[in-house]
Structure formats: structure tokens, C-alpha cells
Amino acid sequence: MTDRPTAQLSRRSLLAAAAALSAPAIARAATFPDRPIRLICPWTAGGSTDLQMRAIAEAAGKILGQPMVVENRPGAGGTLGAVALLQARPDGYTLAQLPITVFRYPFMQATPQWNPLTDFTFISHITGYLFGVVVRADSPFRTFPDLIAWAKANPGKLTYGTPGVGSTLHITMEQIALKAGVEFLHVPFRGVAENQTALLAGTVMASADSSGWAQLVRDGKLRLLVTWGAERAKSFPDVPTLKELGYDIVSASPYGFGGPKGMDPPVVRTLDEAFRRAIDDPGHLSILERFDMQPWYLSSAEYAAFAAQLTENEKTMVQRLGLRL
């Protein structure tokens, strides 16, 4: 004979379990986050990206009520954060910067490691870089035309460092070389720290990098020859842009933050809102100002649409230039 109360309890338990399984996103959104969030910076510590990410992570963590911890994974042209996302759980606790190389590298590889539009969740677009070319303060190159003139007279002997093969800095320098009719010798590094160290030591003659060089320029240790923005940098108004020097090139390399594919929409909205508010945090804005970086917020949906256009642009550029890793 069946024990009726036990049977009713069993059915209630099954119904409760089914209900819990049918609404995991709601439950997770209500409790997210309940532990620290990891934000991967695919560049070395101390550079403009690292400092920007630490500032916004601190502000976002306060908004979320849980620490957001920055983890550096430099190398591979800034794509190791994206690689980490491929293996991470889509629970919102592992995020990474998505630099432009994430959208470029798949078209430079015989066997792409990821699809930039289907293998990630786009959370928030944040900002873009100020790029430029610097030399040591005692360099004979007083201007960027001086550097180009020397390169013309000494084919293949002018060495310059960047954060890696296939980076925007590498590609832009090669575009400059093509337009100027010169040949440079590229020396790739893992990030701004190694790049600057090599320049200061005289291992390379010039460095093309994001504005992590800014303080060294202000301190008189480096000389800034040119910037790559649409307009002159606010902090360095006496330094010309590439366009002013006759090169029809503007390069800012925008970036945002993403997570693994398949994240719950409520969790994405929670993170997006935190980053949206954190962008305007005074501590974060001071870092952007320090490196002449501009706030460039896009919501999750806007960022996804922007990423689709960016991917198409990068595919076209890679095919046009015949770039390969």
C-alpha cells in the first residue's frame, strides 16, 4: 500500500526541483555576483591598459559589491585573454579585455582558434588608445621626418619595438613604411614594459606603443615624435599627427570587455550596468586623462553590432595586406 503523504512529498520535491531548473538565469541574476570576478588583462603590468583596467575594475567592484580582480596574461598579441574565455564557464566570473587583435588574428591563421562573433559574449565597450612613436631623449631623431629620412638612407636597419606581431602598432608601422617607401626592422615584445625597457637600453631605436610612454616623455627620458589620432593629443599639443605629416592614417584601436559565449542575459546586464557607471568614476577618468584615452561606452547590444563591423573591417584589411602569422 502506497504511503500517500510520502508520495505527495515526493511530487512536491520533484516539482520544486523542476522549477529551480527551469529558471536558472533568474536565480543566478538575483545572487550575482556572490564572489570575486576575474578580469583578464592580456598585457603586462604597468602599461596604460593595465592601469586603466585596474581603475575601472576597482570602481565596478564597488558597484557590484564584490572585488573585480585584474589578472595579467601578456603575450600572443594581446589574445591570451580571449583564449582563456574559450575554456571558462559562462557564469560571469571570468571576463577579459578584447583588443582589436581578437578580431584580426582569425583571418591571419590557417586554422583559426576562435570565431570572434560567436565564441564570446560582448559586455561593454570602454575606450580606445592614444598611439605614438617615441625615441630616447638623446636620439638624433628630433622629428618623425628625421626618423623616416634615416630609414631611407639605411634600408632595414631602423629597429622599432611593438607589443607583438600582428598588433595594430606593428601593422600601422608597416603601413607607414609602405607609404614612405622605407623598410623598418620590427622587434616584437610582450607589452609596453618590455618595449620601453628595450628602448631605454638602446636595444631598439624607436618604440611604437600606446601612451604608457607618457610619463617618460614628461620626465624628459623619451621624445614623442608623432601621434596617430584624428587630432593632436591634449597632453602633447606640440606633437603632430600622422595625418598632419602626410600619412592618411588614423589608428586608435578601440576595445571593450567580454566573457565566454552563452552568458545569461541578466548577468550580462548586471555587468554592463556596472561598467557603464564605473567609466565615469573620478579615479578611472583620471587614468584615461593621464594617458589621453577617451571614454567610449557602448552597451552590450551596441558593442555586439560594433564588433560585427570591426570583424568585417579587419578581415578586409588582412586580406588586402596579405597578413599571416
Rank of each mutant, 00 (worst) to 15 (best):
M1S: 02
T2H: 13
R4E: 12
P5I: 06
T6V: 12
S10C: 10
S13I: 15
L15E: 14
L15Q: 15
A19C: 08
A20S: 11
A20W: 08
A20L: 13
A23T: 12
A25C: 04
A29I: 14
F32G: 04
P36Q: 03
P42I: 01
T44P: 00
A45C: 07
T49H: 13
M68G: 05
E71T: 02
A76Y: 05
G78E: 03
V83E: 12
L85I: 01
L85A: 01
Q87G: 14
R89C: 07
P90A: 06
A96K: 01
A96G: 11
P99L: 11
P106E: 02
P112A: 09
P112W: 04
P116H: 04
F122D: 00
F122P: 00
H125N: 06
T127W: 00
T127M: 01
Y129D: 09
F131G: 13
G132L: 06
S139T: 10
P140I: 07
F144I: 03
A149D: 14
P155I: 09
G156N: 05
I171C: 13
Q175K: 15
G181Y: 06
E183A: 12
H186W: 12
V187E: 07
R190G: 05
S210K: 03
L216G: 07
R218G: 04
T227K: 13
T227H: 11
T227S: 06
G229N: 03
A230E: 05
E231K: 15
E231C: 10
S235D: 06
P237K: 15
P237Q: 14
T241I: 00
K243G: 11
K243E: 13
E244I: 04
I249W: 07
V250P: 04
S251Q: 09
F257S: 08
M263E: 11
L271S: 02
D272T: 14
R276M: 06
D281P: 08
R290P: 07
S300P: 05
Y303H: 03
A304H: 15
A305P: 15
A307R: 07
A307I: 11
A308W: 10
A308E: 12
Q309S: 15
L310R: 13
K315Q: 09
V318W: 05
L321G: 13
